[in-house]
Write a protein that binds this DNA or RNA. Structure first.
Length: 218
DNA sequence: GACCAGGCACATC
DNA sequence: GATGTGCATGGT
């Protein structure tokens, strides 16, 4: 069963990679920038999160120390394009405070934690849920935690590969039990799923024209 | 003008 | 444990 699952996953991955090419995620220059992006992109089009990041960059606010020194209204104004800006400013400041108090401001040491401990501590911070935590683990800490998102769920349930009612953690396990813990593979796979979902997998049940529908269900 | 986007916390049953 | 709701901007 697990061997079949591994075959399926690798076939999906190969199909997407062949059709779309490498995505080279995450579009950020530092781990801290990845973390800001992960929070700002919550339930938001990436272009909007990118506009907020650009505002922060213009104001020299892409470092932990600089964000710690800012006040809430200033931060809210800068990240406004990303939407949910009141919530997100609180989340960003909560993360920075956590790092300052528990890790003496050392993001490097924090991200070097053993993977499941890092994930658990991230989840304990207000505003960081499972997807954001896994994104940080995978793209900022470079540790192999598979990131599940709405596209992953949509694509895999619509093709009948998982139950529609599957939980986040179970869907994450679905990938991690079957695949080797390969950071680059996990990074590309997740990016490819978002890309194909963005291109084809909207409201309709199955598009029947994207590479996955054509090659996997042929 | 409706719908959607790289979620999460909280209330309620 | 499952389901519903508020949060908010910007593109299609």
């Amino acid at each position: 069963m697990r061997a079949n699952r591994k075959e399926l996953l690798l076939q999906v991955y190969d199909t997407l990679l062949a059709a779309l090419g490498p995505q080279n995620w995450w579009p950020a220059q530092t781990p801290f920038e990845v973390i800001l992006g992960a929070i700002l992109a919550q339930n938001t089009a990436w272009s909007n999160a990118a506009a907020a990041i650009a505002n922060l960059r213009r104001n020299g606010l892409l470092s932990l120390a600089s964000v710690c020194g800012i006040n809430t209204p200033q931060l809210e104004a800068l990240i406004r394009p990303s939407g949910f800006y009141r919530q997100k400013s609180g989340k960003i400041l909560a993360f920075c405070r956590h790092l300052a108090t528990k890790w003496n401001g050392s993001l490097e040491e924090f991200l070097a934690l053993e993977m499941e401990r890092l994930r658990a501590e991230l989840l304990s911070i207000r505003g960081i849920g499972p997807e954001t935590a896994d994104s940080i683990v995978l793209y900022a800490a470079f540790q192999p935690s598979f990131v599940v998102d709405t596209y992953t769920w949509r694509i895999f349930s619509r093709h009948g590969w998982v139950e529609e009612s599957i939980s986040y953690d179970d869907l994450r396990e679905f990938f991690m039990e079957a695949m080797d813990p390969d950071v680059h593979l996990f990074q590309e796979f997740r990016a490819l799923l978002v890309r194909i979902g963005h291109l084809y997998c909207r409201k309709t049940p199955l598009c029947q024209q994207c590479p996955l529908c054509v090659f996997m269900d042929a």
